[in-house]
Write a protein that binds this DNA or RNA. Structure first.
Length: 424
RNA sequence: GGAGAGAUGGCCGAGAGGCUGAAGGCGCUGGUUUGCUAAACCAGUAUACGUCGAAAGAUGUAUCGGGGGUUCGAAUCCCCCUCUCUCCGCCA
């Protein structure tokens, strides 16, 4: 959520910065309503002030002059009614303002490159060498099916398309990856592990920006209503909702493993094969709460922490900076990590690292105090996948495949899998 | 699921229609005293939104779990909701 003050007071600025994302809607109306709200508040408050002053006279009058008290009472009754009417109007206005504001995306950071689609995302760096094969590399869904570790048919039988069953070494590899990533981030990168609920309430989803705009993307239960988390970002960021954090302890760094649930409503027909786009997948997520002054340094570090997973697994990848048109709703700046998938001959997103600045913090009221006597300020929130586990598993299958269809396990992972290769 | 109790500031805890942003205590911050520390004493110690101001700040309004109602006036009275605790039942 943007700062209403900023929108009303610096409308042109806001519009210019938003236009990097595409056409701007509603900003004008927002500024207008914001100005009207202020005027109404002024009127209501001065009326209320008069009432309070008169109220103090009332008590004396009640003793000394009953008739006068009666007159005053009638007068105040009318004033009170008028003021309540104003308050109703203000409330209505604020509801409308909130609704508009919740649908306006975050302002892109100055360094966000121009562009309208993912094709225009500049490559920031490329790391590692794509493996050279003496045979034609195959996609992970073929390899995994032949090895008997990925079972798409039975996934579909149980739950429909975009669900997969992992067997034996596949299940073990998934679990090994989760463990490996959590250990790396907690032991070497200074993150605190947290295991949050996988079902959250509407307000948590709104806090991080998934709602109200993207409700059709989420799975939810009814009576009682719960949302299945689309990413650990939701519960972990909301851990500190309505809190004032100690500035001396920033940045807070959390890492969480959770399954993630997504409708993929807008992705019909895309990535229908393999593990790339599932309704349910595992992810290890990095989340930070940072001082606004250093949040962009923290973004670089967080991205490096995610990259470290790929590097240790010996997977080649590139880092792209999302352009204005490709930037997510809540993000001010995002780097995507794309892993090379030799079996598909393309790069696939495996992590998305973003600085949300104060956008989520304002929605979720997450603040900090710089000094014990200072006024609370909004924190900056950041997060990034570290990494998407299913896609990592797929990348390992494709990058470490052998001519005979077996797959060797990256060195770093072997203590976790307990085996060095997966064969038939 | 059944029965009961409760929710007040960073924390504990008074208050039972007006003068209560809210006694008292603890904590915290600053000061005095003081070889140092501690103790003692004094002062300060919420948030949001308005208005004025370049700013520091001044000032107004709101806020006693949330929402609604009664009233000239609600922390205080009434209604609804949420959460917490205790006991019973059930359950991984």
């Amino acid at each position: 959520m943007l700062d209403l003050r900023l929108v009303t007071d610096k409308l042109e600025d806001v519009k210019r910065r938003l236009s990097l994302r595409g056409p701007v809607k509603d900003a004008e109306r927002l500024a207008e309503l914001g100005a009207r709200r202020r005027a109404l508040i002024r009127d209501s408050e001065s009326l209320r002030h008069e009432q309070k002053l008169a109220g103090e006279r009332m008590k004396d009058l009640l003793k000394s002059d009953p008739t006068g008290a009666q007159t005053l009472r009638l007068e105040l009754k009318e004033k009170s009614a008028r003021q309540k009417q104003l308050d109703d109007e203000i409330k209505q206005l604020e509801t409308e303002l909130e609704e508009l504001l919740l649908f306006i995306p975050n302002l892109p950071h100055e360094t966000v490159p121009p562009g309208t689609s993912s094709e225009e995302n500049p490559v920031v760096r490329a790391v590692g060498q794509a493996p050279a094969f003496s045979f034609t590399a195959r996609p992970h869904w073929d390899l995994g099916t032949e090895l008997g570790i990925l079972d798409f048919e039975r996934g579909a039988k149980l739950s429909g398309s975009r669900f997969t069953v992992l067997w034996g070494a596949g299940a073990r590899l998934e679990r090994a990856l989760i463990q490996f990533m959590l250990d790396l981030h907690t032991r070497e990168h200074g993150y605190t592990e947290v295991l949050p609920p996988f079902l959250v309430q509407r307000e948590a989803m709104a806090g991080t920006g998934q709602l109200p705009k993207f409700e059709e993307e989420a799975f939810k239960t009814t009576a009682p209503e719960y949302f299945l988390i689309p990413t650990a970002e939701v519960p972990v960021t909301n851990l500190h909702r309505d809190e004032i954090l100690d500035g001396a302890r920033l940045p807070l760094r959390y890492v969480a493993y959770t399954p993630c649930f997504r409708r993929e409503a807008g992705a019909a027909g895309r990535d229908t094969r393999g593990l790339t786009r599932q309704h349910q997948f595992d992810k290890v997520e990095l989340v930070k709460f940072a001082d606004p002054r250093t949040s962009y340094d923290e973004l670089e570090r967080l991205t490096a922490d995610a990259e470290d997973v790929l590097r240790r697994l010996g997977l080649s990848y590139r880092v792209v900076a999302l352009c204005g048109g490709d930037l997510g709703f809540s993000a001010a700046k995002t780097y995507d990590l794309e892993v090379w998938m030799p079996g598909q001959g393309r790069f696939v997103e495996i992590s998305s690292c973003s600085n949300f600045e104060d956008f989520q913090a304002r929605r979720a009221r997450i603040r900090f105090r710089r000094e014990s006597s200072a006024k609370p300020e909004l924190v900056h929130t950041l997060n990034g996948s570290g990494l998407a586990v299913g896609r990592t598993l797929a990348a390992i299958l494709e990058n470490y495949q052998q001519a005979d269809g077996s797959v060797t396990i990256p060195e770093a992972l072997r203590p976790y899998t307990g085996f060095e290769r997966i064969g038939k």
